[in-house]
Design a protein around this nucleic acid. Structure first.
Lengths: 210, 210
DNA sequence: ATCAGTTTGTGAAATGCTGCACAACTTTTG
DNA sequence: CAAAAGTTGTGCAGCATTTCACAAACTGAT
């Protein structure tokens, strides 16, 4: 246990959490890995093995106590506490992400929004006042920002990333069309939507004759 | 060759394409897999092997002709033609995606935008008039829509997906917080941003003491 | 208390992907 | 022309992940 958790496992945990919340809402107080697997279209053994990376949460012969497993998975994902996030780049995508309420429901609260454009600074987006970049460092300290979302043009992405690292942010979610790098100790996640759409395009084009 | 291309390979092709375009822009007419690998921080052999799934595009002893390889990768990704896409759900995220110009640059043109809310219908978003859902089928036929982007609440996602399948769309990009399913022959890509953020949260929480 | 029926947790086989080493081939140099 | 240097394409070994199969453990009935 905890020998080295594959990234693929961590990617699946949120899926389990959502499924568990749904099933709890449906009234199931006890669940088996088979039930979860059926709902997710997955092999039950994989679910058990994924969970086993973090501990023994089930009862042999019975299954999992829904509420208990939800608590455990939340804890593994760090969702048992509230973390403050910020968005840098108040364009369409940045504003959409800042205004999305789905994150806060799980303890990930967007607490600040920044933009370099003086014309945008001061405007209200989903209850947040757009701040100038000069205020980034002090705000990061004051709000204990932990996660940063980058939605600036690709050319500015690395600069913003460096600033976030200096400010002590531990997780960076990069939506810019440029690969950025961060030192060890900062978790970087690339979410380049254009790349995703391109790979989808491959399958679309493959179905029809070229 | 073409024995069965792993999904991981298809995911990397867009990365190669972007890198190639950048290097072409920098004036390189001939490239070696080593150059590409250095720039991307990858093993050159993996790049060669990925390309080998689709054919032999290089010249032994020399490398790859940049413009030629770009053409080939574009063709593999189906980006040598223009495809029409649509967005269903004109919320913040849907509007942001519909208005993003980066897709059209690669031949993926957002040609229609739909929403079920009568108050939104008729409004102009990034040059597109929001259409009511009733117009979906006829518009899909008229514009030969090939890809659909779902940005509606999770509860409506499956319904929209079914509609897209009936309308003959071959690729569906689902941003809703609900797993949907589509029959064989339709490529479905889930891009649930909440799940991505949750897995990032795991690493952030893991760095600090719980 | 024992036994049948479940379900978890996990070692082991199978599968899939990655990295390495080298043959095949081209260009350049002497 | 021959040899040296460079680069692609690919068989093979190694690693990682997934699937399978089963022992361990719990519940409920008799």
């Amino acid at each position: 246990m905890l020998e080295h958790v594959p990234a693929a496992v961590v990617e699946r945990l949120p899926l389990y959490l959502r499924c568990l919340l749904k099933l709890e809402d449906d009234g199931y107080t006890i669940l088996s890995s088979k039930q979860i697997g059926d709902r997710l279209g997955m092999d039950p053994a994989r679910i058990r093995k994924d969970l086993a990376y973090f501990g023994e949460f089930g009862i042999r012969g019975t299954g999992y106590v829904t509420a208990d497993l939800i608590y455990q998975v939340r804890k593994i994902l760090g969702l048992h506490k509230v973390w403050n996030m910020c968005v840098v780049g108040a364009g369409h995508l940045g504003s959409a992400l800042a205004g999305y309420g789905g994150f806060a429901k799980h303890g990930l609260r967007t607490a600040a929004l920044f933009d370099i454009d003086p014309h945008k600074v001061g405007k209200n987006v989903a209850g947040l006042i757009i701040q100038p970049m000069e205020e980034f460092m002090p705000t990061a300290g004051a709000l204990e920002l932990r996660v940063g979302i980058i939605t600036v043009p690709g050319t500015a992405a690395q600069q913003v990333c460096d600033l976030m690292v200096r400010a002590g942010l531990k997780g960076i979610w990069n939506f810019a069309s440029a690969r950025v790098s961060a030192p060890e100790g900062t978790k970087l996640r690339h979410e380049d939507l254009t790349l995703g759409l391109m790979s989808l395009s491959h399958y679309v084009a493959g179905v029809v004759a070229s």
